[in-house]
Write a protein that binds this DNA or RNA. Sequence first.
DNA 1: ACGCAAATGATAATCATTCTCATTTGCGTT
DNA 2: AACGCAAATGAGAATGATTATCATTTGCGT
Lengths: 141, 141
Amino acid sequence: MPQAENLKKSGLKMTLPRMKILALFESGSERHLSAEEVYRQLLQAGDDVGLATVYRVLTQFEQAGLLVRQHFDNGKSVFELNQGEHHDHIVCLQCGRVEEFYDAEIEARQAQQAAARGFEIQGHVLHIYANCLKDDCPHRR
Amino acid sequence: MPQAENLKKSGLKMTLPRMKILALFESGSERHLSAEEVYRQLLQAGDDVGLATVYRVLTQFEQAGLLVRQHFDNGKSVFELNQGEHHDHIVCLQCGRVEEFYDAEIEARQAQQAAARGFEIQGHVLHIYANCLKDDCPHRR
DNA sequence: ACGCAAATGATAATCATTCTCATTTGCGTT
DNA sequence: AACGCAAATGAGAATGATTATCATTTGCGT
């Protein structure tokens, strides 16, 4: 029961809502979920959780390092399982496809830029917006 | 009167609130302003504008390409004059201070990463979140 | 100067998220 | 296996940023 282990390590009790929420991400039909989506999926599954709890738990999981939060330009944010390695996102403007990438040089340069200005870097967001050239992507302009 | 030209080109009437708001950015004591900050500065200057108008006008200016909007992870967004050249942002999580930077290597790497995955890059968002070490920055939470 | 669509300002509404607090629950201890 | 209590929860109120509504005002072409 790996999620239980993770909860314990984070100093969080193994409560029903927490297990359910973590299970949602780990069963992972969808990798990225907003708080509202988590809430709706739990309700549909017949679980009686409060929206406040969903927000609380997601935030705790983020702080515990179990989840990573992504804020998008439209003001919404989604969570995804933290699978260890940091990555950035490239998003297709046409079809919404999301791919992940990691570039050590980019990471290093960011650290340099921050340090050079007297900032202690806490994190960053790098979203590349693009058009993908996949066959099933609707390429109208 | 360059701002008047810009307004006309955008199909927007040359109204008092719009001139005032644009002038704020062009006189540019501060480069990045939130809607709330624009509102407060106008009130302080004795101009009687409504907050709704500020939001409306900022959005219109963004659509007209006069301003660029930056969404930050803390939920706030700021506007800055669109001066053509691209740059990224580093934001202090404590005091909200914003600085700009540009790193050619980061830009080049992004292009590579996108191309390697078959994406035609259209744009990107790179926000570094950090704590600044300035004296007037409230380092309590 | 006239008229009318466009723009404004005051306020209500919305949306995502956080807070409050009375009740419930997990879990270490008997 | 029941007890006790801090931690966690759920319902709803509160918040903060932004958007919508609508009666009044204003820019600007005639």
